[in-house]
Simulated scan of single mutants.
Amino acid sequence: MIRTVFILLYNLIRNIIYRIRYKSRYRACAVERISPGASVRLYGRSECRFGRNIELAPGVDIQTHGNGSLDIGERTYMNRQCMISCHNRVSIGAGCMFGPGVRIFDNNHKFSKDG
């Protein structure tokens, strides 16, 4: 019970900080279950939207870059060590459950004009 209250308070504060830091580019409900060990970072003019009642376990790493747009639907669960790297657009529907170590990329590492 105490752990749950701590996580909810932590997330409320984190949500306020993200809203100040990222302004309208970051949208989430006031109370989410995002582990203190999870990371959400927005670079450039990218944006991130979380639906209601999501849960991100420890080690989850979410990054958006450039003009990327990430949408995660309500009631979505991401287990330990999952990663999303979004440079263009990633959209995850409602009620999805990701097992440990899932990686989602909408980009590659080829830098030639042919790749």
Rank of each mutant, 00 (worst) to 15 (best):
V102E: 02
A28G: 09
I62P: 00
N107R: 10
Q81N: 15
M1L: 11
I104A: 02
S69R: 15
L9Q: 04
S46Y: 02
G99D: 06
D61E: 11
P36E: 03
K113E: 13
G66E: 06
I54T: 07
N67Y: 12
N108P: 08
Y43H: 15
G59E: 04
R103M: 06
L8S: 11
I7N: 11
R27E: 13
L70W: 01
V60F: 05
R52T: 13
N67L: 14
C82M: 01
R33M: 10
C29P: 15
R52K: 15
I104E: 03
N67C: 12
M83Y: 06
T4C: 05
G99F: 00
G51L: 09
R3D: 07
S91D: 12
V5N: 03
S24R: 10
S39V: 14
R21D: 10
R89K: 15
N53T: 07
M1T: 11
N67R: 14
E55Y: 08
V5L: 14
V90C: 03
Q81I: 06
R14A: 08
G93R: 06
A30D: 05
A57H: 10
C96Q: 02
C82I: 03
R45N: 15
I84S: 02
D71I: 11
E32G: 07
I104R: 01
G99I: 00
G93N: 09
P36V: 04
S35L: 06
I54W: 00
R3P: 00
I16W: 13
Y43T: 06
Y43D: 09
M78C: 01
C82T: 02
A38P: 00
G101C: 04
Y18W: 15
C86P: 05
T64N: 07
V90K: 03
Y26Q: 00
G99T: 10
H87P: 02
E32T: 14
R19M: 09
E74F: 05
R89N: 12
F50Q: 04
S39Y: 08
Y22N: 00
F111E: 04
A28H: 03
L42R: 02
G51F: 09
Q63F: 11
Y18H: 12
E74Q: 12
K110I: 13
H65I: 11
G66F: 07
F111S: 05
G37T: 05
R41W: 12
S91Y: 08
R33P: 01
L9P: 01
C29T: 12
I34C: 03
I92H: 02
Y26E: 01
R52F: 13
S85R: 12
G59R: 05
N107L: 10
G51N: 11
S35Q: 06
G66N: 07
D114A: 14
Y26G: 01
I92P: 02
R3C: 03
G66Y: 07
Y10N: 04
I17F: 14
Q63K: 14
H109M: 04
V40A: 02
Q63Y: 13
S24Y: 06
V90N: 00
P100N: 12
F6R: 05
R33Y: 10
G44F: 13
S69H: 15
E47S: 15
N53S: 13
L56R: 02
Q81D: 15
F111Q: 04
C48H: 00
F105G: 04
P58D: 14
G66P: 01
I54G: 01
